[in-house]
Design a protein around this nucleic acid. Structure first.
Length: 466
RNA sequence: GGCCCGUUCGUCUAUCGGUUAGGACGCCAGGUUUUCAACCUGGAAAGACGAGUUCGAUUCUCGUACGGGCUGCCA
């Protein structure tokens, strides 16, 4: 019996949840939730200068949109500073770490020189083996004693075994001269203390894993199962990150993509399960596994996102869509739907959801149900109305009085009417659409009529005839 | 500079030594049609390059090119 899976998402709160981070969170979520494990959230806020509560809130919001719920409280890494220092001091006491009195200026000067000489910029502290008696009374940092010979092998589930020469490892800093812990220490301690079994993160951390390994070994802790996933690139192939103007997850919400579609798209980006492209959350949870993750970076393609968003809207329940649309409106900073509009929307949903790729798209087609008389035709609709004589619409309207108000009968009536006037129904559809919705893009006129009902339909037609 | 990782149609990808290299999005052509969308039919479109291993390489190995990452008292 294997132990329970515990994964975590550990963003640093320096900006919005960018799309690459969202996918990392999603992978961790899928892996844990798909196996009855736990998915934890830890905010890496040890850099006080760059961390902000606003950013944390934005990350939480982005995750909420995508439905990535985490177990337990949100953990602040900064809160664990004392524990991190404790570990550093333990290592120091055990002789596995040491005090380094080199100043930052000193090190910077060394690096500059090494760079101009074309030599390795790896800093070798002269204090590594210094006698404590020679220690000056000055500020110091605590560095770990990294192995200098041999190799460190990262057994990565995505990248395979990655071998790094220990001569590439520096004695990284554990505790700054002000006593605060550095990320490299904090991740290891926190992942260990939180019982994290599987770490899925961006491959920008692949090299760091070797460094972190030295802490695991020094503490005698078991290393987690690592999976370093390739970063997502922009459509231009360039790195997509918050530093390079990446789009935040919430911006996609504000653009009106469905969360289900986004989950599907992000899951499929860089991960595959044979030829499956469109799948539900249940299927993703069932299928997701580490060995399906690709090794090469993927580009973000809005067209495919759009397509999947549409497919997910089409299979969503009407009430759920109504709810998600209200949230979209809020995210897009648009006025909320009134209760009446919302109810009308849900009633019309059946003929809207299979034809819309995004929510603004759906709302555009829903205009007929959301608007109230008198209908204000937009430019295109006005043009369609002008293309037909008032007479013919005026003649049609009374005929609606006694027809049975079902889709089929309406269709029959309108076709016969068109035939009687020696025209095609197609010629009539435009003006009818314009009169009923004030828009050129709408559902079928028969659907609109049956949803609107006889009275409202006739009233709108009469309005249009004038 | 040093080290690490990557490279199949425009894009996301399948293939785990032998396939006419498959699918999806997008694109093009045609069909259907009541606008948009959807749908149907067909089409163009890929193994970065060079060696090697092998009866046989997209697949294994090496090199080159290109791209990315790390090399912080950032995360």
């Amino acid at each position: 019996m294997s132990q329970q899976v515990v994964t975590r998402f550990a963003p640093s709160p320096t900006g919005f949840l960018h799309i690459g981070g969202a996918r990392t969170a999603l992978f961790n979520w899928l892996y844990a939730r798909g196996r009855g494990g736990k998915f934890l959230l830890r905010i890496e806020d040890t850099d006080r200068q760059r961390s902000s509560p606003e950013a944390t809130a934005a990350i939480l919001q982005g995750m909420a949109w995508l439905g990535l719920d985490h177990d337990g409280e949100v953990i602040s890494q900064f809160d664990g500073a004392a524990r991190h220092a404790e570990v550093a001091n333990q290592l120091l006491a055990e002789g596995k770490a040491y005090k380094c009195f080199a100043s930052q200026e000193e090190i910077a000067a060394f690096r500059d020189q090494a760079k101009t000489d074309g030599k390795s910029t790896l800093y070798r502290s002269p204090w590594r083996d210094a006698d404590a008696a020679t220690h000056p009374d000055a500020p110091y940092v605590i560095r770990i004693k990294a192995p200098q010979r041999g190799v460190t092998i990262i057994e990565d589930q995505v990248q395979g075994d990655v071998t790094i020469g220990n001569d590439q490892l520096d004695d990284m800093i554990l505790l700054r001269s002000d006593g605060t812990p550095v990320y490299m220490l904090a991740v290891v301690v926190d992942d260990h203390d939180m019982g994290v079994t599987h770490v899925i993160r961006g491959d920008d951390h692949l090299n760091n894993a070797a460094r972190q390994m030295t802490i695991y070994q020094a503490m005698g802790w078991q290393v987690p199962v690592w999976s370093h996933i390739p970063l997502i690139h922009g459509p231009d192939g360039k790195k997509l990150s918050k530093r390079h103007g990446a789009l935040g997850a919430q911006e996609y919400q504000a653009m009106g993509y469905s969360a289900g579609g986004m989950r599907n798209y992000l899951t499929r980006l860089g991960w595959s399960h044979g030829d499956d492209e469109f799948f539900t959350d249940a299927q993703a949870l069932d299928w997701f596994d580490l060995d399906g993750i690709g090794k090469s970076p993927a580009r973000f393609d809005t067209k495919k996102l759009e397509n999947l968003s549409g497919q997910h809207i089409a299979i969503s329940g009407d009430a759920a869509l109504r709810h998600e649309i209200q949230q979209y409106l809020a995210a897009a900073k648009q006025p909320a739907l009134t209760d009446a509009q919302s109810a009308a929307l849900e009633k019309a949903m059946y003929c809207l959801k299979e034809r819309a790729k995004t929510f603004p798209n759906l709302l555009e087609k829903a205009e007929f149900a959301l608007a109230s008389r008198p209908i204000q035709p937009d430019q295109k609709a006005a043009k369609a109305l002008a293309a037909v004589s008032d007479g013919i619409l005026g003649e049609l309207t009374p005929q609606l009085q006694n027809v049975s108000w079902t889709r089929d009968d309406l269709e029959e009536l309108l076709n016969e009417f068109a035939e009687a006037h020696d025209t095609k129904f197609g010629k009539l559809a435009g003006p009818l659409r314009a009169a009923l919705a004030g828009r050129a893009v709408t559902p079928s006129v028969f659907d609109m009529m049956s949803i609107l009902g006889r009275d409202e339909t006739m009233a709108r037609l009469n309005d249009a005839v004038g």
